[in-house]
């Protein structure tokens, strides 16, 4: 047996389906292999389709992109700018140690600096409010860093979007993120979360619309896009995410996917279909009355301070007039 025959048999040169060039990625679930050039064209088309299909925002609306410095958010910002949207960035420095937050901010700033017209706003949690996430977690014993982080980011993003007059907040959640959360919510039968998990969360008075334009792309594809596009992003996972349940669920889902291609799409799109077409997880008493926070004015479910302002009450800098 000659070695050339063997190499050929093993499929050494996977071809781009569009041009016949050497493929950089093989997307099994789509039965599609693409070269770098065509992959960089294919990804924005998928994002544009998702924006249109789920009616995320229109061409004249102002979008605030939550930019962490990771592959998803930087890829998202790059794609939205490429599609011609008015998309500004918001980076929140969370004060995570070992250089993680500093490097994340540097990536976000370098991205913006290289793109004329890409406006980036940075909120430094420790500087503006008095403590970063690790310190907050220590101060508020019993609260996990990831849970605090999510709440803090949601609050600051909403405040920045509302005060800046943006029509929507865009986050870099990809299909793998959504499917991992869906698995978690299903295992716990968290019906209220299953009722809300969607590519678009409509805005309400005081709450900006939230959209996830990467929801039809896999993590592998967003990472590949960032690499091929030459976007310098932070490779490492947040140190607080080590051992996180969602990472475990992603591994499980990856194994399922290896056994049965398309499982992730089936699971996620099945949720959307079950809810939209079959009325699952709907109830008439879902609407919760909201009250303005006594300190920051953002809507909150109970009268008094919102969860974010309660975090700082009595401990750190005054949050009045924040952001």
């Amino acid at each position: 047996m000659s070695s050339s025959w063997w190499l050929s048999f093993r499929g050494a040169d996977v071809k781009c389906k569009l041009c016949g060039g050497t493929a950089v990625i093989n997307m099994h679930q789509h039965r599609l292999s693409l070269c770098g050039e065509h992959f960089l064209q294919w990804v924005p088309v998928q994002v544009a389709r998702a924006i249109k299909k789920y009616r995320m925002f229109g061409p004249d609306e102002r979008i605030l992109v939550a930019v962490s410095g990771g592959k998803d958010s930087l890829a998202l910002w790059d794609i939205l700018l490429g599609l011609g949207y008015h998309a500004d960035g918001l980076h929140i420095n969370l004060g995570v140690g070992n250089g993680y937050s500093a490097e994340s901010q540097a990536r976000a700033e370098a991205f913006a600096a290289a793109r004329p017209g890409a406006a980036l706003r940075v909120v430094d949690l420790a500087r503006e409010y008095g403590a970063g996430i690790p310190e907050l977690a220590r101060m508020r014993r019993g609260r996990k860093a990831c849970s605090l982080c999510g709440m803090v980011k949601r609050h600051i993003m909403n405040q920045a979007a509302c005060s800046g007059g943006y029509d929507a907040i865009a986050t870099g959640h990809n299909l793998d993120d959504e499917v991992a959360v869906l698995l978690q919510n299903t295992l716990r039968w968290s019906v209220s979360y299953l009722a809300r998990q969607a590519p678009v969360l409509p805005g309400e008075p005081g709450l900006a619309r939230k959209v996830k334009p990467l929801v039809r792309l896999r993590e592998r594809e967003t990472a590949a896009y960032a690499l091929v596009r030459g976007i310098d992003y932070i490779y490492d996972e947040c140190p607080h995410a080590e051992g996180a349940t969602t990472l475990f669920y992603k591994e499980i889902l990856s194994q399922l996917e290896t056994r049965s291609r398309g499982t992730k799409e089936m699971f996620y799109l099945g949720l959307l279909d079950a809810r939209e077409q079959q009325g699952a997880f709907r109830s008439d008493d879902e609407k919760v009355e909201m009250h303005p926070c006594a300190r920051c004015g953002q809507p909150t479910t109970a009268p008094g301070l919102c969860a974010f302002c309660r975090l700082w009450a009595g401990g750190t800098k005054d949050t009045q007039g924040e952001v």
């Binding site: 190499l7 093993r10 499929g11 050494a12 040169d13 996977v14 050497t22 493929a23 950089v24 990625i25 093989n26 292999s33 962490s68 410095g69 990771g70 592959k71 998803d72 958010s73 969370l94 995570v96 993680y100 994340s104 982080c149 870099g172 793998d176 993590e219 592998r220 990472a223 690499l227 992003y233 932070i234 490779y235 490492d236 996972e237 947040c238 607080h240 995410a241 990472l247 992603k250």
Partner: peptide, 21 residues
Amino acid sequence: NEETILAEDDVIKLVAVVSGG
């Protein structure tokens, strides 16, 4: 792509698909 045959003198850097925060 994952079907590429590697040569003796290749240096391959692997990047985790899961990353960021």
